[in-house]
Write a protein that binds this DNA or RNA. Structure first.
Lengths: 119, 119
DNA sequence: ATGACACTTAAGTAATCACTTCAGTGTTTC
DNA sequence: GAAACACTGAAGTGATTACTTAAGTGTCAT
């Protein structure tokens, strides 16, 4: 019996949820220009350090960021392939959508030929 | 005086928040293969029609989906450029990150030349 | 050792979320 | 005109979120 009490959220849930907060996006933006400590990441924000750490945890759980502690400072950095899942989902939507439009306009062109083309 | 009581969430907030729910992503996936009515969209899900309509509202507010009512049936479809904001944000992160890595490896190559290259 | 530093953890709170049910509203169909 | 259909809107509920404060835990400098 594999019945889970609360189903684990899908990776994409965690990823998009993580990106839905402006502070968390800001931290990711900061980290794309290079690693930073927790307090460096916290500096631009009005919130408490505790709140920043909680955001960081969401980012790590989503696979976007990873970090390691050395002495008393934790250094955070982008997880290299982190965004690729989200990127791929969006790309899949775009291509499916575009293929459909192509088929549709092809169909319309063919139909136009069938009756109204030469008056 | 432009003081807002509750700051309006940024478009990206709404967009990623909308994509963070599996049911909403499922509806977007369904709609990329063509328009659908509300009940058609609701069919695969165990939840009430009301809940589906609420998800749909989130999707419309985020700019991912639009809909129009004809007679008693509301037809939903993908909003063409809808995903592009999210797509662009992700792309921007990727390119910034990659440029940084390039600069870094360039620097490392240059540094290696400076002392240890010819033993 | 003492104190400053960089977090870390726990507990609490107000707001938002993802639903539910129930009671409509307008539209076709018979 | 009555009944079925396709939503629509309001109100309520329990869970999750985004914070807060307060009290730690190791680490490094003096």
């Amino acid at each position: 019996m594999t019945g889970l009490q609360h189903a684990a959220p899908a990776p994409l849930d965690l990823m998009f949820q993580a990106l839905a907060d402006p502070a968390r996006r800001g931290m990711v933006e900061r980290l794309t220009q290079g690693p930073a400590s927790v307090s460096e990441l916290a500096a631009p924000y009005a919130m408490s350090l505790s709140a920043v750490v909680q955001h960081l945890r969401v980012l790590e759980d989503s696979g976007l960021v990873r970090s390691q502690k050395l002495g008393r400072v934790r250094t955070c950095q982008i997880q290299p392939g982190g965004l690729s899942l989200a990127e791929q989902w969006i790309n899949d939507r775009r291509t499916t959508w575009e293929r459909r439009l192509d088929r549709l306009s092809q169909y319309l062109a063919d139909t136009a030929q069938d009756d109204g083309e030469t008056p």
